[in-house]
Simulated assay, not measured.
Amino acid sequence: MKIEQFRQSRADDLITAAKIIESVFSGSILTTPIYIAAEELRKGAPFLKDGTTNNDLWGYEICDLKIPVDTTKHMRPKGINHKNVELILNMKLVANYKNWNDLNDPLIDLNFNAVIRGIGVQPHYFCFHIDKHDPSKEATEPHPTYHLQIASNPLDEDEFQYGNTLFLDTPRIVHHPVDLILGIGLLTSNFFPFAFDNIMDDGYFSSIYKVYQDKILKPYYHTIASNWSYDIANICWSKQHLCPTII
């Protein structure tokens, strides 16, 4: 498949994601950021952080995609409920299409930022991101290439009110990479499980979701598993229990 066709296919997948989100959430989510990303993807190769690009690259950026939050049972402080909580996703992905069909890392750059904002007497935030670390850069602590990291200060304000929370730069928790398709599963399964079930009940979307698991998750987990030799016939654990978003 030529790169132009490949980008078109990935853009079509984004449009499919937007339409299923619109259907499941009855049009209450503004999916314009996804349509803009699809159009950006079709136009051509994105730029890397150093300003360079080449024709083998594909990618997109999602800006301020807002998703309602329904998992507020144990939320603190009290006085905040699902009616005044929302999740805001900003992400950027750059990948090399030549690595799409093998066990190489398909992504070159990833930044997946989620901010959960609840409005009480004042705004309260819970934030996390999944990104890709450049292994060529030195680090003073273990720094997984792909990791999830918790944050609390979405705008990095010096005068941010942390309350009684102690915030550190660690831990960086090992996590598989995600694009928007896999990210929809990650976010809805954690913050709106009813929507996750409905999204995965859509046969067309679930088939696309499986493709992205095969192209993005499979190389990641196979690489980790290669540290050991094992007989797959002796696997006893349920993969759905270990990772409920696996389908």
Rank of each mutant, 00 (worst) to 15 (best):
M91K: 04
Q8A: 03
P68F: 14
A37H: 09
G203C: 05
L89C: 09
S207C: 05
N99Q: 05
D197P: 03
T32M: 03
K215I: 05
E39S: 14
K19T: 06
Y220T: 05
G185E: 06
A114D: 09
I247M: 10
I116S: 06
S26H: 09
S26D: 11
I36V: 14
K210T: 13
P33W: 01
S28A: 11
T16H: 04
I246H: 13
A18L: 02
L148N: 07
P123T: 04
A233L: 08
W100F: 11
N153W: 10
H176E: 14
V211K: 10
C127F: 12
A195H: 04
H175L: 01
M75H: 04
I116M: 13
S23T: 07
W58T: 00
G185K: 08
E40L: 04
N54T: 03
N164H: 12
D214W: 12
G27W: 05
K2Q: 02
S152D: 11
D156G: 05
T52G: 09
L107S: 00
G185F: 11
V24K: 04
R42E: 15
D105N: 09
I88V: 14
A151T: 06
K92N: 03
I15H: 03
D50Y: 00
S152I: 06
I80F: 03
H124P: 03
T71S: 12
Q240M: 07
C236G: 08
K218V: 12
N55T: 12
S206R: 14
E159S: 15
F160T: 11
I36T: 05
W100E: 09
A38K: 05
H143N: 15
I20H: 02
E61Y: 00
P171W: 09
K66W: 05
Y220W: 11
T31Y: 05
L48P: 01
V121W: 05
L110P: 00
L187I: 15
T31H: 02
S23L: 08
I21L: 07
Y220S: 03
R117M: 11
P177T: 00
P123Q: 11
N81Q: 01
E40R: 11
Q122P: 03
F194T: 07
A225W: 15
N54R: 08
S189G: 08
A11E: 02
L155H: 12
L57P: 10
P244R: 13
D134L: 04
I88D: 13
S206N: 13
S23V: 01
F192N: 14
I246G: 10
L93C: 00
T165W: 10
L186A: 10
L89S: 06
A195I: 02
W228C: 11
C236Q: 15
V69D: 13
N101Q: 06
T31E: 05
K210W: 08
I119W: 12
P177H: 07
W237Y: 15
F167Y: 14
S152V: 08
K2R: 07
P219W: 03
F160H: 15
H176I: 06
S23Q: 12
Q122A: 11
I208E: 01
D12C: 08
I3G: 07
C127E: 12
